[in-house]
Amino acid sequence: MIEAGDTAAVAAQLGREPRGVRAVASRCPCGRPAVIETAPRLPDGTPFPTLFYLTCPKAASAIGTLEGSGIMRDMQARLAEDPSLRTEYAAAHEDYLRRRDEAAHEDGVEPLPAGTQSAGGMPERVKCLHALIAHELAVPGANPFGREALEALPEWWRNGPCVQPGDVPTDPEEDA
């Protein structure tokens, strides 16, 4: 669901107008959007494979720091060694694809072709914690590496919202 002010808040977070927004998939404890659900195809029909898009710049910064720590190398090694983890990560990939296809059907557009990437390197690589955490925030319990990385993050929202009220233009007619 998109509430009044959400599109403007996301635009302020991203520094540009968001494209293909379907819903706010997860909110920060401050109430601002943290993850948006995007359409599988942009209005002009261009494929957009990223279903869950992290928008909170404070979260993105914290995740970037975590990525720089080498955690993804460790995750990738564990993925190669642990069959049950591989199975769980493959299930996360299938969940992502299923939800993206459902969104396409709900929007009345053609689903993306079979074999189109999901997100974050799934199901064989750990490539982007931003995407994996976005999936986990949007669908709690769905992504094992997203969950693990999310638990390793500091409370990025502690010092207030990433976008201050004055940064978000208000449009009384905005409904998404």
Rank of each mutant, 00 (worst) to 15 (best):
3 E>T: 07
120 G>L: 05
113 P>E: 09
170 T>I: 14
137 L>F: 11
33 P>G: 07
85 L>M: 06
23 A>R: 08
111 P>W: 11
89 Y>H: 11
95 D>P: 07
1 M>I: 03
24 V>Y: 06
158 R>D: 14
117 Q>I: 05
156 W>G: 01
134 A>R: 12
169 P>W: 05
69 S>C: 03
33 P>E: 06
44 D>Y: 02
151 E>G: 09
30 C>G: 08
118 S>G: 15
165 P>N: 09
62 A>M: 00
93 H>R: 13
109 V>Q: 00
150 L>V: 13
5 G>Y: 02
135 H>E: 09
97 L>W: 00
91 A>W: 08
111 P>C: 05
118 S>F: 03
46 T>L: 05
154 P>H: 11
84 S>W: 04
82 D>T: 05
28 C>E: 12
57 P>F: 15
70 G>E: 11
158 R>I: 12
143 N>M: 04
60 A>Y: 07
37 E>W: 06
37 E>H: 04
117 Q>C: 05
58 K>P: 11
65 T>I: 10
152 A>I: 15
15 G>I: 10
134 A>P: 11
135 H>T: 07
171 D>V: 13
39 A>Y: 00
108 G>L: 02
151 E>W: 15
94 E>I: 08
107 D>P: 13
109 V>N: 05
48 F>P: 13
75 M>I: 11
106 E>C: 13
114 A>M: 13
174 E>F: 03
31 G>H: 14
129 L>Q: 08
100 R>L: 06
62 A>N: 02
98 R>T: 14
137 L>N: 01
166 G>D: 12
77 A>S: 08
111 P>M: 07
125 R>F: 15
161 P>F: 11
149 A>M: 12
21 V>G: 00
40 P>A: 01
116 T>W: 01
53 Y>P: 05
134 A>M: 13
132 L>P: 07
80 A>H: 03
83 P>H: 02
176 A>K: 07
130 H>N: 08
59 A>C: 09
158 R>P: 09
148 E>Q: 08
146 G>R: 15
46 T>H: 03
119 A>V: 06
26 S>Q: 15
68 G>M: 02
95 D>C: 12
1 M>P: 02
131 A>P: 07
101 D>R: 14
73 R>H: 13
44 D>K: 04
30 C>E: 10
51 L>I: 00
82 D>R: 03
101 D>H: 15
91 A>C: 01
100 R>T: 04
96 Y>V: 06
45 G>L: 03
17 E>A: 00
120 G>A: 03
128 C>H: 08
80 A>V: 01
154 P>M: 06
140 P>N: 12
119 A>G: 08
49 P>R: 08
123 P>N: 11
175 D>Y: 14
103 A>Q: 03
81 E>V: 07
13 Q>V: 14
59 A>S: 07
101 D>V: 09
164 Q>W: 14
35 V>I: 13
18 P>A: 05
23 A>Y: 04
165 P>A: 02
65 T>Q: 10
76 Q>V: 05
9 A>P: 06
6 D>N: 11
173 E>N: 01
1 M>H: 02
79 L>F: 00
114 A>E: 13
128 C>I: 07
32 R>N: 09
72 M>N: 03
84 S>V: 10
7 T>A: 14
160 G>C: 01
74 D>I: 08
135 H>G: 09
150 L>H: 14
28 C>D: 10
143 N>L: 01
